[in-house]
Design a protein around this nucleic acid. Structure first.
Length: 120
DNA sequence: GCCCTGACTCTCA
DNA sequence: CTGAGAGCCAGGG
């Protein structure tokens, strides 16, 4: 049972929820924004532990998180990767193979959003 | 407490 | 841009 929700996971999920639809972010970016520099891998783990129902009544758009190369890190052919591709495309994000055009779709946090994060 | 693994990232060729 | 290698941190056995 995973009842002890780790604060870091919570923070990561919260940050992921801040990603606007139609945009994507890298693990490192999320880790950094969540106040966990160099914990990109932990972000992946956190996403793997995301409750299926979401967090605090909101869905956690884990599929908007990809690696710094703009690729889906999940094994190709796995349910997760296929689902991620589909969900991204539903958000009008072009996905070629397992690749996304970071140049066009990478999320660039605005000042407001950064200030919002600083409140915590 | 050591060792291995991992939804990562950076650097170099 | 792509691929290979080394680095890094946290979790689980």
């Amino acid at each position: 049972m995973v009842q002890n929700i780790k604060p870091q996971y919570r923070q990561i999920w919260q940050t992921v929820q801040a990603i606007p639809a139609g945009k994507v972010a890298s693990y490192g970016q999320i880790a950094d924004l969540a106040g966990l520099p160099k914990r990109a891998r932990l972000v992946g783990k956190a996403l793997g532990c995301v409750p299926k129902n979401g967090w605090q009544g909101q869905a956690v758009p884990w599929y908007r998180v990809i690696n710094s190369q703009g690729k889906i890190s999940l094994p190709q052919g796995s349910d997760g990767s296929l689902l991620q591709k589909q969900l991204l495309q539903d958000e009008q994000v072009v996905v070629i193979g397992c690749r996304v055009k970071l140049k066009d779709y990478q999320w660039q946090p605005s000042i407001d959003e950064l200030l919002f994060k600083l409140q915590f």
